[in-house]
Design a protein around this nucleic acid. Structure first.
Lengths: 191, 191, 191, 191
DNA sequence: TGCTAAACGAGACGGTACGTCTTGTCTTGCT
DNA sequence: AGCAAGACAAGACGTACCGTCTCGTTTAGCA
């Protein structure tokens, strides 16, 4: 039996929207629960009822719905990897994500419970996709069977992350292709 | 002409030590300027006189002195890359660094002036080293001349970063070697 | 015509009991509507349906039923006044009252509507009783006719209040008698 | 040795003034620490550094400086008592006091430490004055020596309190004289 | 027996205030 | 002029209540 007044979905939406607006405006560090509540026209209790912390709230507002589709077969390893790298780059360079990610990752790293959730929703999906890509490539005979999807994924995601958040400027537009080429070249001679 | 009392080097040392102790103890987010001042037995003004922000202070205390030596030639591309990856891994997984880096990167990303300094002290050195390594390999004929040190460096650093801060656990001990192998394999065949 | 579900008397009782328990436990300031509702196993709406505020609710739970009986003639002014002072002392020093009164009076003083009600149920009764006592004493010839019941009542009630709530400790057990003596002495020479 | 920046007296003054303005405006219950800080242009920390609670802050702002002077001899018991009653009435019916006292007394009653302080600054002074008055009257032969200053004070203060805070309206202007007469009459005849 | 209306417990809603903590600046007396 | 100490204004933190509301359920009188 469902007791009590049910939660109002409008609150979730208003908060998510306010989070994105504030991220765009002043960034993650200047985003405070008070500010989000005021902007969303929502009580602070309504936020704490849903999320344990600022990081969790932003995580849901920014990362939610970024699930990757099962990757269409583009006919070859390089094309598949390019598509995946492109997808990662688009996710991470979306305006909200770009503003939120460094701070969000810092808070996630300090909160094991949230880290688990982040890994499950974000990392694992991409690794799964990569696993499929590598299996398809192996089936085609492009590469051997020993390729480690975790390592390859770390190279792709890591390289995009470094470009976006450590090198500062806009990454070169051909980054996904060049990255996919480099990674694929490292794979195609079966070890 | 130098007027007034000269700065006391003991302050710098006491602060750096306090920063490292607090990082070890409670991590970057719980480290506050007040706490550092109290722990170091130093006035807050003495800290603000030296550093503009918590991020800058921690940056100096943690990243300072991590300059990489000119890389000894280990005789081959893979060995050189393994050594570099190993170096990066050691830097990033040192206890203080591991505690500080996610938060530090977040604050750096939000502070352009500091971002420039971080890039200069940390990123550029590693890229320089990598440039030397790639030039030596090209001279040996192991690879062609077109290799992009920025991209390769992003793969190395990024992959280590992802393992340490997004995957959570301890990275496999052979990560540097496997990473170097993968990257080198991507370079072998002159494009 | 009485349509709809009638109010459940158990709610009134459960709330009154919860109020008294919480007063005994943590006092008036820590008593909140939420807490009473939770303790009584009652919805907050059920409370607000009956009382406009915490003060009103506590007022009913604590002061209710403290109506004074028509005062038996004890044969003399001093005896009558002692009985009244004793009655007031007992009312005010009952455990719940002692915990509730200072805060309750503060809230009553800030709420004119409630102040009216409090005066009618609490003050006026005592003044009426005192009026009877003074009239009986005048009829006996103990005092003249000009005695002001309001002033006398203020001395009695006020002195008890000061002892209980401003002097802190337990008032001396002979307070009612001594107070009645002093007040009677001030009356008995007809002015 | 006095280390650190000394407290700024302007803060004390600004807070006291803000407290009085807010009391005049909206009363004790609506006076919040946040509101006082904002009105005074002062940080909340500056308030909590000085006072433990709202009650303590208001107590100092409202009751401070109400110390009674050593009472001039007005030549007779009734005149002395009238002067004292008048003094008490003036103190309690001053605008700030009238707004603050009910709530303040409630909070004081719930805080033993503050109750002690309140008794010492407010009650004890008046009792001392009354003791002198009674001793002078005894020396004049107006009354006996057994008069209890505590009881007499409770009658005076209590009666004024009841008039001001329980009866609601403005007390009659001759209240001090009539009260002094009644009390004096109760003392005249040495018991 | 079914219908309607109000009361029921539960708990979410937008707000306000709490008391604490942190930030970056400022002000002492001492060195 | 640098130093340690610590006060300053500002404002965020997470919690607790406020008084209102919205659920699904229960209990009555009326049809």
């Amino acid at each position: 039996m469902n007791r009590g007044r049910p939660r109002d979905h409008k609150v979730d939406e208003a908060v998510s929207e306010a989070v994105r607006e504030i991220l765009d405006g002043v960034g993650y560090q200047q985003l405070s629960i008070d500010r989000v509540a005021a902007r969303a026209g929502v009580g602070k209790a309504g936020i704490y009822r849903r999320w344990r912390s600022k990081a969790e709230m932003v995580f849901v507002a920014v990362v939610h719905g970024t699930e990757i589709d099962p990757p269409p077969d583009r006919g070859g390893l390089r094309a598949d990897l390019t598509a995946l790298a492109e997808h990662i780059l688009v996710l991470l360079s979306a305006p909200h994500a770009r503003k939120a990610l460094p701070g969000l990752i810092a808070d996630i790293a300090a909160d094991p419970e949230l880290a688990t959730r982040f890994a499950a929703t974000f990392i694992d999906r991409q690794q799964d996709v990569l696993t499929q890509i590598l299996e398809r490539a192996a089936a085609r005979g492009e590469i051997g069977k020993g390729a480690d999807p975790v390592l390859v994924h770390a190279q792709l995601l890591g390289a995009v992350f470094v470009h976006l958040f450590l090198l500062g400027g806009t990454p070169p537009s051909d980054l996904p292709r060049r990255l996919a080429d480099a990674v694929a070249a490292g794979l195609d001679t079966p070890e």
